[in-house]
């Protein structure tokens, strides 16, 4: 198992390297003169030329690529923003945790509500609970999240004053700043998790081992939670992974509405301003975060299903057998 984890971590390196090279190369082809962006529209020719040399824009592509890669991987230096001259790595270190917390809180709410909803729908298939649950899920997918965000703000912040509408806070009390954004963000993931749970549970409930469990005299509730749900978890975990990945980059609208300074607003702002170092650095960090998340998901698979765990552990044994034969 440990070997599997190490192997996966080692695989991450070429992947991140590939992302870096790809992003760097694409940015070279984008229009816009970095010197002009940095110095603004009032700069003179001489200043612009000097800046170009300073940035190394006159060097050949491979040298620039090599410099960039060595900066990123050996010095952990993602450069500075062209517009504000602020160090990108430290800004990301500030902002990434916020995006991660938002994603995690969103997932907790989405799956915490979605899984029970899906189970209810599956166990009462074609009855009113099923229809109501699935309609709720449908509404969740259909509602635009910015509309929901504004409604939540009006209700919980302006009218009731229970939760803050914007910004971030420190410490444990800071979680309250994430609740409204997470609620606005979770509608889609909630719908997906409910539907996925329902369909996975329906598959599993028909299985023979569920009949075996019932024939043993296990209480229905135990049958659903201990026997059925545990087996239905695999597709649900997959959905969780996909939702998490989407949330890492895509919470931009929510971050903008709630003034949550996270990765989404950072990168989108940089794209709008043509602040390429931020786009590059942000993409790399997101790629890393995503890879780690996928690794955790795969490990979660192993924790839930012993057959997969055996697969991970035995993949090297199979190779040995081949060599001998």
């Amino acid at each position: 198992m440990l070997r599997y984890i190490v192997k996966r971590l080692l695989w991450m390196i070429p992947i991140i390297l590939g992302v870096t090279i790809l992003v760097f190369t694409m940015m070279i082809f984008c229009p816009g003169d970095p010197a002009e962006i940095i110095l603004g529209s009032t700069a003179m020719e001489a200043d612009l030329a000097a800046k170009r040399v300073e940035l190394g824009l006159d060097k050949p592509y491979l040298i620039r690529l090599a410099t960039y890669i060595s900066d990123v991987f050996f010095h952990f230096d993602l450069g500075v923003s062209w517009i504000t001259n602020v160090d990108i790595m430290s800004t990301i270190a500030d902002r990434m945790p916020r995006t991660l917390i938002l994603a995690v809180v969103t997932l907790v709410i989405a799956f915490g509500l979605g899984i029970p909803l899906g189970i209810t729908a599956a166990t009462h298939q074609n009855k009113w609970q099923d229809h109501v649950s699935m309609v709720l899920a449908l509404i969740g997918v259909a509602i635009p999240n910015f509309w929901l965000a504004l409604l939540l703000i009006i209700l919980f912040s302006v009218k009731l004053g229970w939760l803050p509408a914007m910004g971030v806070g420190t410490g444990l009390a800071g979680i309250q700043y994430y609740i409204l954004p997470a609620l606005a963000n979770c509608a889609g993931a909630l719908a997906n998790s409910a539907r996925q749970t329902r369909s996975a549970m329906l598959d599993v409930i028909r299985a023979d081992y569920i009949t075996t469990a019932r024939s043993k005299g296990v209480a229905e509730r135990q049958v659903i939670i201990k026997h059925a749900l545990k087996n239905a978890l695999l597709p649900i975990i997959t959905t969780m992974g996909i939702s998490f990945g989407r949330m890492l980059g895509g919470a931009m609208i929510i971050e903008t509405i709630f003034s949550l300074p996270g990765m989404g607003s950072y990168i989108i702002g940089a794209v709008n301003n043509r602040d390429y170092p931020i786009v590059q650095g942000g993409s790399i960090m997101l790629a890393i975060a995503f890879s780690i998340a996928m690794l955790l998901i795969d490990l979660l698979y192993a924790a839930v299903d012993p057959r997969i765990k055996a697969q991970y552990a035995s993949s090297k044994k199979r190779k040995k057998v081949k060599a001998v034969a």
Binding site: A207, D208, Y209, A213, S215, H227, K230, N231, P306, R307
Partner: peptide, 12 residues
């Protein structure tokens, strides 16, 4: 039960 391959809970 009839089919032993599926009658046992695979994760237990």
């Amino acid at each position: 039960f009839q089919d032993p391959m599926t009658a046992l809970n695979p994760v237990q």
